[in-house]
Amino acid sequence: MPTAYDSDLTTLQWELLEPLIPAAKPGGRPRTTDMLSVLNAIFYLVVTGCQWRQLPHDFPCWSTVYSYFRRWRDDGTWSQINEHLRMQVRVSEDRHPSPSAAICDAQSVKVGNPRCHLIGFDGGKMVKGRKRHVLVDTLGLVLMVMVTAANISDQRGAKILFWKAQRQGASLSRLVRIWADAGYQGQALMKWVMDRFQYVLEVIKRSDNLAGFQVVPKRWIVERTFGWLLWSRRLNKDYEVLTRTAEALVYVAMIRLMVRRLAQEH
């Protein structure tokens, strides 16, 4: 299959994704849009950072592409595909499909759209915009993402993030330990997490005895995940009006990363 853009899916990558795409709704006119072209258009937008209306004309009409993206955002398809591929990657790495440990952290990013809802100022990072609260497994794969205004504290965001993670049910049923940085320290939060979810929240602090950059055990994993996300130019800033759209685009970026990794292993 010829590749027009670097972001396009290869034949093998499409074979891995195709079974996960929702079937057409029964009744009405049959689906005529090529789902491969829709996915290629969405990946092109995420990788290049272009606007929906600026999608090249060799893709389906931008409004058609966006309608599929929005539908799959609202019905949870993107998070479900992310979950399915994450389990496949874990199995390919000889890991249990469901993780027993995770790392949480938050990343503040500037907004690039004056119409964005929920904007705040992160006094610690000196960023006016939004904050991505993420929970990743020990491979750096996203288990859950939540986007808030940047003035929401890491601890407050973590509480909501853990509630969302627990609602995932069976896919995270083995989760017992979560590592975090000093922004999550405090006996009150640790006790709250244990009482509500039976998770052990372990804070890993940076050593005060070493100067300059240092790799902190476990915490480097989530920092690498943030680096992966920034490979996608659409995520270098938050251009989305709705936070749930911003969350869906994080899943899209991770889906592209995982399907490429799985295709290399076949």
Rank of each mutant, 00 (worst) to 15 (best):
A101Y: 01
V252T: 02
S63W: 15
F121K: 12
A102D: 06
A41W: 10
S98W: 06
K128V: 11
I255H: 02
E223G: 09
S232G: 02
I119F: 02
M87V: 08
V259I: 12
W14C: 04
D94K: 12
P26W: 10
Q107P: 02
H57S: 13
S173C: 12
G124Q: 07
T48W: 01
L45V: 14
G212T: 00
G123I: 05
V259R: 01
L45G: 01
L235E: 06
P19D: 08
P22T: 02
G112Y: 09
K128G: 05
T243E: 00
S67C: 05
I21M: 12
T64K: 13
R167K: 15
G140H: 02
M87A: 15
M1Q: 11
F226V: 12
Q168D: 05
P217D: 05
G212E: 00
E240A: 04
P19W: 08
R70W: 10
V176Q: 15
L55R: 14
V200M: 03
P99F: 01
G169A: 08
I81D: 04
T64H: 05
E202N: 14
P22K: 07
A180F: 00
K159S: 14
V200S: 10
V250L: 05
K25M: 04
K128T: 15
R174L: 07
T243N: 08
R244G: 00
W231E: 09
S207P: 01
D238E: 09
R256C: 01
N40I: 12
R256W: 07
L141M: 11
Q264D: 13
V134H: 01
L9H: 07
S92Q: 14
Q264C: 10
L143W: 04
R95V: 00
T33I: 12
Q155D: 03
R53H: 11
W52L: 13
K205T: 07
M254F: 03
E15V: 02
